[in-house]
Amino acid sequence: MHKLLYSENKENTIREIECISDSELLHVITGNYNWDNGFEIPYSIVNNKNCDLGTALLIFYYADGYRVLENSDVINNLNLKQWDNFISEIKERILNNKFQCNRIKFIPPLTKVQIFKFKKNNPNIDKVFLEESDGEVIEIPSI
C-alpha cells in the first residue's frame, strides 16, 4: 500500500485503485491520502464500486465539503472550479444513495455546537452529513 500511496505515476495508481475489491483498503488509502496531490486519486476511490458510504463521507470531509454545508454559496467560487465539481458530485452521490456498501462507520468530527449551527443555517441539511453512519469503526493506520 505504501507504494500505491507514494507512487509518482497517478495513472498507474488510479488503475490499481479501480481493481481494489476491499472496501476497508479503500478506506485506509483515503485516510492516508495527501490532499496536496489533487482530486484524481480520491475521485477514483469514490468511483470504485466497492467504495463504502463511510469512505465517501470521509472523502467529503477531508476535501473540506463541510464548507458547502455551512454556506452553499462557497460552491460557486470560480477560483475553485475543480473543487466545486468534486464536492458537488460527491454530495449528490451521497444524497442519492449511490454507495452500495455501508459497513464502515463514519463519525463526523463535529461538536454539538457545530451541528446546531449547521441545522440553524440550513434546516434542510441531510442527517447523513451530521450523524454517525452505520457500520464498524475501521482504525486507519498511518502509512
Rank of each mutant, 00 (worst) to 15 (best):
K98S: 11
A56I: 01
Y61W: 11
T55Q: 10
L26Q: 01
N96M: 11
P108A: 04
R93V: 01
I115C: 13
D84C: 14
I143H: 12
K112V: 11
N76Q: 06
F129A: 02
E89V: 08
D52C: 14
N121L: 12
G38C: 08
M1A: 10
K105G: 10
K3A: 14
D64R: 10
T30S: 11
D134H: 08
P42T: 01
G38A: 05
E89P: 03
Q82Y: 12
Y6T: 00
K127L: 15
E11V: 07
R93C: 09
S72Q: 08
L58G: 06
N50S: 11
D22V: 04
N97C: 12
L57Y: 02
N71C: 12
F118R: 01
S88F: 14
N122L: 11
I45S: 03
G65I: 00
F106A: 01
F99S: 03
F106I: 00
N102I: 03
I107M: 15
I138T: 02
K105T: 04
K117T: 10
N77Q: 07
S7P: 06
I107V: 15
N37I: 05
S21D: 06
E89A: 09
N71K: 07
I140G: 09
T13S: 13
N85T: 09
Q82W: 11
D84H: 08
F129P: 02
L25N: 00
D134Q: 10
K105R: 14
D36N: 13
K3L: 14
S7F: 07
N37L: 15
R93A: 07
G65M: 04
K117W: 14
K81G: 10
Y61K: 04
G31F: 09
N37Y: 14
C51R: 01
E16M: 09
S44K: 00
K91D: 05
I75T: 02
N77F: 14
V137P: 06
K10V: 13
V128D: 03
V28C: 13
I125P: 11
N37G: 10
R93P: 06
N102H: 09
S44R: 00
N12F: 13
R93Q: 04
S7M: 07
S88N: 08
V28N: 04
W83E: 04
K98G: 04
Y62E: 08
L80K: 03
F106Y: 06
L5K: 02
E8Q: 06
A63E: 01
I143A: 13
E89T: 05
N121S: 15
V74P: 03
P108G: 05
F99P: 02
E16G: 04
L25S: 03
L25R: 01
I20H: 05
N122C: 12
N32A: 09
S21N: 09
K127W: 13
E92T: 10
D84T: 05
E136V: 06
L26S: 01
N122D: 11
G38M: 04
P108W: 05
L57R: 00
F86T: 01
Q100D: 08
K117N: 14
P141I: 03
E18I: 05
E18Q: 10
N79S: 12
I115P: 10
E24N: 08
K112M: 13
K105M: 15
I59C: 11
N50D: 07
D134F: 13
Y33L: 07
T55H: 12
I107S: 15
N37P: 06
K127S: 15
F106D: 00
